[in-house]
Write a protein that binds this DNA or RNA. Structure first.
Length: 669
DNA sequence: AACAAGTTGTTTTTT
DNA sequence: ACAACTTGTT
């Protein structure tokens, strides 16, 4: 393609062009944080204290002061957060900041390891396993070891992987972890250890890397290969880490390694918003930063620009009851505002009706739907509400929670693509073969055994063609071999490969999911447009594993986009976001805090911080609601008490409200 | 008898 | 969507 070159703007020197009024746009602490460019800095940034703003201005300041954007590294919790910050910084400096390196720890590890992973024995074409891929591998190995047919019930694949992952992220051995937190698995310890070895060996043989490996390998690279570490450290001369309270010790070591040549690190975080301990984070880690980097300058941002005083009062009251004291108390200048309400509802349906009705009223008062959100502890807590919202034609998007159900079809297509990238990928072969009618686990296993003898993709597909065919699947197996042979051709563009696979797959999809077939087909169309943006299959596969397309397009298209969408979200996924009006539903003891998280004081305290995060999302209106007497099927318990975190709060902080039915006035139609 | 496919009860949070 | 179990096919 031809290029068209824009001339540099010659009307001003950089110094004259960017005249950003840092002191005018930022408060004193923010200004200090944004303009301290050298040396280690720890910013304790309370909720709504302008953290993103501060980071954005700091990026601008760095670029403005002559630092090449490529030497700035911005590590954030999601890729979206990084993109947003860079876009805003670009506006400030009147130029592009897209050469600033940014993303999640995992995506950064991915790019670095593909370029510098060789000393670790890693091929540059490694495949990333997402959570469910990793579970599939563990399942395969579990069956291979005969552990699925034991008298004593062996833990499920998900539980097994949790143990492995937790051990890595908390830097513990599996035996130590089992002793500490998984006592009920002590009987299976030997099998677990053998499985762990098998899992590691399998990944090594097949060039597979899971989420934890990405972090561990990067850490090993930085700590064990000082030449590479020095080179990377000179490349990224300014490192910024967002959401530091949710990093674990491996990530801390990565940061330390990246800064080995300069110590120009800014970590930003809030110890009272640490909510990812299940991923190995510990809120006390943020205090270790000062020990990791001697001479750290610590700056606290405690002025809140988001919420009204009554909302902050509740937030402070919630966190004030934590036995371990946190580093700051938020204050605001927005003195006026309505008090948050604690709403008691007879049951879940009543709660759903209350929320829907109140949302409609707020909309009447002029709030648009995208200024409102409903938050909850666990994804399934919103099921009743979703039905009620549909009844009222209130359009919404749901964020967070596992979404395997919606993505199974995308994963099926991806499995075909992965065969092209790696013909030895047993899990993908298994998945693809099982889609064929009349072909079950046994035959899939046999076919794989036959095919995996091959040296490369072509060879593997040729072998697929020679597999002795009999039975119902014979014809379909032949068609699969044909499809794979076509799509292996290297000159075929990525989107064309995906297109042919989708064409092959769609009839099977229709057969398997007749009810919601159209919606799923739309997802695949969407996936095709995504695939068209990639020139290499490997890059597509890597991105899909690290950040799969989040929202199913079917829902969004159906909605009336003019007035925006209501947000439904788990609290975890609501991190960093804000709305005018926030509803937190399911405030029942046993749901929030979750029954699964009450085994230790640390777990309870994490639930408390989770509520703190939820409450501090609200700008103006805040409703906490709970149904009484709901039956929890998982435990067989009846839950009827409001969350312990709200117990005994004075009504000056939290006003009670009881939802009652409209009295029947006897009129009929 | 071996294998595939259909049925039923559960599901924390996520890169 | 998974896993354990049951029913149906070759």
């Amino acid at each position: 393609m031809e290029t068209y070159t824009l001339r540099r703007r010659a009307d001003a020197t950089p110094q004259e062009r960017y005249r950003i009024d840092y002191a005018g746009e930022l408060n004193e602490s923010q200004y200090l944080a944004a303009t301290t460019l050298e040396g280690p800095v720890l910013v304790i940034a309370g909720a709504g204290s302008g953290k993103t703003r501060t980071l954005t201005y700091r990026v601008a300041r760095l670029v403005e002061s002559g630092v090449p954007p490529g030497q700035v590294l911005l590590l954030t919790f999601t890729r979206k957060a990084a993109e947003e910050m860079l876009a805003r910084a670009s506006v400030l400096v009147g130029g592009s900041c897209d050469r600033v390196a940014g993303g999640t720890f995992h995506s950064f590890a991915n790019t670095v390891l593909r370029r510098h992973g060789r000393p670790l024995g890693l091929t540059p074409a490694f495949t990333i396993l997402d959570r469910s891929d990793a579970e599939d591998v563990v399942n395969l190995l579990r069956a291979r070891a005969g552990l699925d047919r034991k008298e004593r019930r062996f833990p499920r694949k998900g539980a097994i992987l949790n143990v492995f992952s937790m051990a890595v992220n908390r830097s513990l051995s599996v035996p130590a972890l089992v002793e500490e937190d998984y006592g009920h698995l002590a009987d299976h310890l030997d099998d677990l250890l053998r499985l762990q070895d098998a899992y590691a060996a399998y990944k090594r043989e097949q060039g597979l890397v899971d989420y934890d490996d990405l972090l561990v390998l990067l850490r090993d690279l930085l700590c064990g290969h000082t030449d590479v570490a020095a080179q990377l450290s000179r490349t990224y001369r300014y490192v910024m880490v967002d959401e530091y309270q949710d990093t674990n010790s491996i990530q801390a070591e990565i940061v330390r390694g990246l800064a080995v040549e300069h110590a120009n690190v800014m970590a930003v975080g809030d110890d009272s918003q640490s909510i990812y301990s299940f991923r190995g984070a510990n809120f006390r880690n943020i205090m270790d930063f000062e020990r990791l980097f001697p001479g750290t300058q610590t700056i606290t941002l405690d002025e809140n620009y988001r919420s009204t005083q009554p909302i902050l009062q509740l937030a402070n009251a919630v966190i004030d009851r934590a036995p371990e004291k946190y580093t700051k108390i938020l204050h605001t200048r927005r003195i006026d505002g309505t008090r948050p309400m604690l709403v008691q509802c007879a049951d879940e349906e009543t709660q759903a009706r209350f929320v829907s009705q109140r949302i409609l009223e707020l909309r009447e008062e002029g709030l648009s739907l995208d200024a409102m959100a409903v938050l909850f502890r666990s994804s399934y807590h919103s099921f009743d509400l979703e039905l009620e919202l549909q009844r009222h034609d209130i359009p919404f998007v749901k964020r967070g929670g596992f979404k395997f159900m919606e993505t199974a079809h995308v994963k099926d297509v991806l499995a075909h693509l992965r065969l092209l990238a790696n013909p030895r990928d047993a899990v993908s072969w298994h998945r693809v073969l099982l889609l064929l009618g009349g072909l079950g686990p046994k035959t899939a296993h046999d076919v794989y055994a036959h095919v995996s003898q091959a040296g490369d993709v072509r060879d593997a597909i040729a072998r697929l063609g020679t597999y002795p065919r009999h039975g119902a699947y014979s014809k379909e197996l032949g068609r699969l071999a044909e499809l794979l042979a076509e799509t292996t051709l290297e000159e075929l563009p990525v989107d064309e490969k995906v297109g042919r696979i989708v064409g092959f797959y769609v009839p099977m999809l229709r057969h398997r999911h007749p009810e919601d077939f159209p919606k799923r087909e739309k997802d695949l169309e969407h996936f095709l447009t995504i695939a068209a943006r990639y020139r290499s299959l490997d890059a597509l596969l890597a991105d899909m594993a690290l950040e799969p397309p989040s929202d199913s397009v079917g829902d969004v298209l159906a909605a009336d986009l003019d007035e925006g969408l209501l947000t439904l979200s788990t609290i975890h996924s609501a991190k960093g976001l804000e709305w005018q009006a926030v509803f937190v539903i399911g405030m029942v003891d046993g749901r929030f805090p979750s029954l699964y998280n009450l085994r230790s004081d640390d777990e309870v305290e994490e639930e408390r911080r989770l509520l703190y995060v939820a409450v501090t999302r609200a700008k103006e209106h805040l409703y906490l609601s709970y149904p009484i007497d709901i039956y929890d099927r998982a435990t067989g318990m009846v839950l009827g008490k409001p969350s312990r975190f709200l117990e005994g709060l004075p009504s000056a902080v939290l006003t009670g409200l009881q939802v009652v039915e409209e009295p029947d006035d006897g009129e009929s139609y």
